[in-house]
Design a binder for these strands. Structure first.
Lengths: 196, 196
DNA sequence: AACCAGTTCAAGAAAAAAGGTTGAACCAGA
DNA sequence: TCTGGTTCAACCTTTTTTCTTGAACTGGTT
């Protein structure tokens, strides 16, 4: 059960669970291995799970009207991900959620999560904190996208998530930051960003 | 609608439909283009469709306990395919069903199929025949796998489906025939199989 | 009118992955 | 102790994916 330890660490960063609570909580999670390029959420299907990435990386994206892919979210080790609009409301998803490499995840299904939340106050708190963090993060993203230039957006991302920049394909990052892959390529050549 | 003609031909090989029946039947099918390596069925998701391959090729496989891929079925032009355990019982799939090349397929969804079958006797017959053929084919496969040597299995397949052998990757064929890719590679070098 | 931030398009280069082959060593059953 | 096969590791070839570059263009500033 060593994979569950990562999750336990993550939990303890945010709230205090007793050992028993940690175990009870973790029992609702199923370990899953997914291969590169495999989808764990697809448009049209309800996202039945929320995922904690033990190891690997994922990318959530939507397809625009002209067929362009827009990356909505990344997730790497120790991150949570799902199509929240689908998961929370149990409606058909609009996103693709795809593994960028062979990965190991822990998944909890919707019903189990409801049961946990109803069961104990601390469990409820943990999910509340997850949701608040996500909401706050999304709000920051919206603001950045509205107010910053492409170059600034890249700089901010680079500073905040240097590990991710190295891990995900550049076209995915470009579409996350709202610019073309060519332009990002050119940005990265600028002396400012050359880290040699 | 020329793609539907292939399907019509296929139908008429097995049963007699009037032109009206053919049209009514075909209206339940949606034309779909899928790109190489794209999945049309994935473990965890219910297979909501049955697929008729107009043009292209597919491979259905499962992942064994140690991560090995076992090819369960191929489908090329004019073949039907799905994860039948998932489709028929509308349960989450256990297979990957992936395009081996850019392909064109016709898909019918579960509900539409039920409606067709309830609607007319001849439609019911056609699906019955499809099912019987699949059952019989699977039975033959099981027997061959139990009673023949690797070399014989390859020989039998080569005779029965020479076109497929040329079309699918060798590792997929090896895993279909229940042998390692290395061994198949060695078998193919034997004079018996060299067709030069 | 020229400038800036950024896009589109096309061509190519570079890097990574997929697919296939080979040989050596091993193993289990007839 | 054969035979029919597997495993493992290395290696090669081909295909695909990803990134880069340059040139030409756009729309809104100055």
């Amino acid at each position: 059960m060593k994979e569950h330890d990562n999750l336990k660490q993550h939990i303890l960063k945010h709230v205090s669970f007793t050992d028993d609570e940690l175990d009870e909580f973790c029992q609702s999670f199923k370990l899953l291995k997914v291969k590169k390029r495999q989808f764990i959420v697809q448009p049209g299907f309800v996202a039945r799970h929320r995922y904690y990435v033990v190891q690997g990386s994922f990318r959530a994206y939507v397809i625009g009207d002209e067929g362009q892919e827009h990356t909505v979210q990344f997730a790497v080790d120790d991150w949570w991900i799902s199509d929240y609009n689908s998961y929370i409301f149990q409606q058909p998803a609009s996103m693709f959620l795809m593994a960028l490499e062979d990965s190991i995840i822990l998944q909890i299904d919707y019903e189990a999560e409801q049961k946990l939340k109803q069961g104990r106050h601390v469990f409820e708190s943990y999910f509340r904190i997850l949701a608040e963090n996500t909401a706050a993060y999304m709000a920051r993203r919206v603001i950045i996208n509205l107010t910053k230039t492409a170059e600034q957006r890249y700089a901010i991302f680079l500073e905040g998530y240097p590990d991710i920049v190295g891990k995900v394909p550049q076209y995915a990052l470009a579409s996350f930051l709202g610019m073309t892959t060519e332009y990002l390529s050119k940005l990265r050549k600028k002396r400012v960003f050359r880290k040699s």
